[in-house]
Design a protein around this nucleic acid. Structure first.
Lengths: 214, 214
DNA sequence: TTGACAACATACCGGGTAGTATGTTCAACA
DNA sequence: TGTTGAACATACTACCCGGTATGTTGTCAA
């Protein structure tokens, strides 16, 4: 059952296409990205893309799925982690932010996919595939939401509407996909400092108490 | 110099097109929106659109401009307002959030425009028009950034990187354009409560002090 | 009454794009 | 060594969309 050389080559070719597609979708959006764009980026032609993916929509879906796959993978170590909920939340949040920075093209594609789903910009055939991906993404989000509720139960977070709190938290933690871009000479600890500032901001927003109303 | 009936009719027709265009751009994005889509939404045809706007790019630019026009208008009362910076910041922030909710289609179009500019997804001819609009939007953002710095000078806000703090603040205050949608039976005070929660979150994020590190 | 023009609608064209049909090459068997 | 099929490239088609060119209609001013 071990994979032969052929399979490895095929997988490598497939992931190369996924990476190129993710970059194209990030740079131009779904509609404005042509299959030829993706092919050209890796010095290939349409034939190669359509050999591995049945359609543009399927290619996009696979980019989405891969993006979520690596997110789940990164978050796995904190599943069922003991101790204070806040500590777990901070680790999860920082991991998530670093993931947004490290795999920006895929995460932008995920964002685009969610937007497409919310706008209903999907054909009936795509619907089932998309629903599955959105569920996949919701299960990921649920891990954060559970921890969020635990933090509130433990008294470290305070917020009115949990739904809105979750939206604001994810907007904050996802935001680097929009404004982060690598600086020349940037070290890993520089990036970690950025991630820390993002996590601190979210934490501050979630445990607010002060109120200089109106 | 008073405008006649003809001019008012023409202006009304123009603003109707702008509104329809804003909705289309919000629902499908720039590329996926066709001129025919915009026309169909108001029961018209291409001819009407091209009579008022020379091109799709110009139509989009005018939607962008109108979105920023109403933003400036809403924020005008707080220009040069005396008193603590935090009070001014809260009023500006809440006004901004309510504006995002009340004029969502235009604000989404502005977002799309900024994304297009950042991606360089503009033709040389569009470049100058776009640069002007981005400047226009930056001047709007500067009003917030100035107040942000004042708040830090007055000791009520604390953050490391001002640039990142600004990004996070705007992501929070703009976020309703992505997740807000009106509920049936929703009153104005319900909306204000949502806006307050958003502003509170941003404020909490900007004056963080606590730190359960790593 | 009549021209003139604004405010559209209709008809059409050219370029780009998703998808397909058909080569072509080359590695792994039998 | 012949054969098969994976992994592409090439050539082509049908369609959609931005833009234009050309009607058509109603209104106002002289």
């Amino acid at each position: 059952m071990a994979l032969g050389v052929r399979e490895h080559v095929a997988d490598s070719s497939r992931i190369d296409i996924l990476r190129a597609a993710a970059c194209c979708f990030m740079e131009r959006g779904y509609t404005a990205t042509s299959i030829d764009d993706v092919a050209r980026r890796i010095g290939a032609t349409k034939g190669r893309i359509y050999h591995h993916f049945p359609s543009k929509a399927d290619l996009f879906a696979e980019v989405f799925r891969h993006g979520m796959d690596i997110n789940f993978e990164a978050l796995a170590p904190f599943q069922g982690m003991a101790g204070p909920a806040l500590v777990r939340w901070r680790r999860m949040a920082k991991t998530h932010v670093l993931q947004m920075i490290d795999t920006k093209p895929f995460q932008r594609a995920v964002w685009i996919g969610v937007e497409m789903h919310l706008r209903g910009a999907t054909t009936p055939e795509q619907r089932s595939v998309f629903n599955e991906l959105i569920d996949y993404r919701d299960r990921y989000g649920a891990q954060f939401r559970d921890t969020l509720i635990q933090c509130r139960d433990e008294g470290v977070f305070r917020f009115e509407n949990p739904s809105i709190a979750g939206q604001l938290m994810f907007m904050t933690l996802n935001s680097p996909i929009f404004w982060y871009s690598p600086r020349t000479g940037e070290t890993r600890s520089d990036i970690e400092a950025i991630a820390d500032q993002v996590v601190d901001y979210a934490q501050g927003g979630l445990c607010k108490e002060q109120g200089t109303q109106t």
